[in-house]
């Protein structure tokens, strides 16, 4: 008969991993989304080296060409290479997506924090204005703003389009950030800061905003996806990016809408590009939320 060995308890300190690595281990789907986003960003950045053709070169000899060895994803009704246009389209999608989301989320976060911090009449008025903006569907508000502002190209990006897509995000971010900030406002260190005689601006920017970064980042990521979709929809309707700039939404409109029954590749691949990009951002955003603050509802 053997006596049971006394169990030896060894204490193993949990390995301190880099947060990015931790995220990848706990959220494999989110990591996959992030990987795809990085890949897409690299392709967009190095488009001139990655794309096999110039996205604007018209080749009437190769109109509506099937996908094959020369043109992997076929050509459109002007003989332009679909793959190259998709790669360059990533530039438009990502630039507008990031800018619009950054602008909308940042404005929303500041408004939300200000609203929560001051409370009372300020809060009431801001909330009513946000209610008004919330009563428009994103695309409807964006269409009206685009029509109002017209075009304003800066470095190849239509800033007014960015604003039109960003505005509908403001009230949504403001609402979420406001509720986070309301909880923080009640914490003792805010009282301490007030007692110390700090200005409102300093308290807002140094003490409250750093503590609402989690909801801000979550909303920011989620809205990049929404912005990419909005850009595609607006361009599809002819109200967003205009020819000859390559844009995924634009690739689905115009000639594509007329010819897609003969040349399905003209619409299948750009649509896949939109879906995959938005999918990747949603996957990443979802995991980021689960990781940082599961209670937030986007």
């Amino acid at each position: 008969m053997t006596t049971a060995a006394t169990p030896v308890i060894t204490y193993k300190a949990p390995a301190r991993r880099h947060p990015v690595l931790q995220f990848m281990l706990h959220q494999p789907l989110g990591a996959a989304g992030l990987a795809f986003i990085v890949l897409m960003a690299l392709a967009a950045l190095f488009a001139p080296w990655v794309a096999p053709y110039d996205p604007l070169t018209v080749d009437y000899g190769a109109m509506l060409g099937r996908p094959g060895a020369g043109h992997w994803l076929g050509t459109d009704s002007f003989g332009r290479d679909v793959l190259s246009r998709i790669i360059y389209g990533a530039r438009t999608a990502l630039a507008i997506g990031f800018l619009a989301s950054f602008l909308g989320s940042t404005a929303g976060a500041i408004i939300g924090v200000v609203s929560a911090y001051f409370g009372g009449a300020t809060d009431m008025i801001i909330q009513r204005i946000m209610d008004v903006l919330l009563s428009f569907p994103i695309i409807v508000l964006a269409i009206v703003v685009v029509a109002m502002l017209g075009k304003n190209l800066v470095l190849g990006v239509d800033l007014n389009l960015v604003i039109a897509i960003g505005i509908p995000m403001v009230p949504k971010v403001a609402r979420v950030v406001r509720s986070s900030a309301l909880a923080i406002r009640e914490l003792p260190y805010i009282d301490a800061a007030r007692t110390a005689g700090f200005s409102h601006t300093r308290i807002i920017f140094r003490h409250i905003i750093p503590n609402v970064v989690a909801p801000y980042l979550i909303m920011l990521t989620a809205f990049v996806a929404q912005a990419i979709l909005a850009e595609a929809s607006l361009s599809f309707l002819g109200l967003g990016v205009t020819e000859p700039t390559p844009s995924w939404g634009l690739m689905l409109s115009g000639a594509a809408a007329d010819f897609y029954q003969q040349a399905p590749w003209m619409i299948v691949f750009p649509g896949l590009a939109i879906s995959l990009a938005v999918f990747a951002f949603n996957l990443f955003g979802d995991s980021l939320r689960d990781w940082l603050d599961p209670k937030i509802k986007i």
Binding site: I274, S275, V278, N282
Partner: peptide, 21 residues
């Protein structure tokens, strides 16, 4: 369901028409 949020409805419409055709 995440895919449902990602697929633009107008593109899905085109794909549906294409398949039906």
């Amino acid at each position: 369901s995440i895919a449902g949020l990602a697929v633009p409805s107008f593109w899905l419409g085109m794909i549906i028409i294409l398949s039906l055709l």
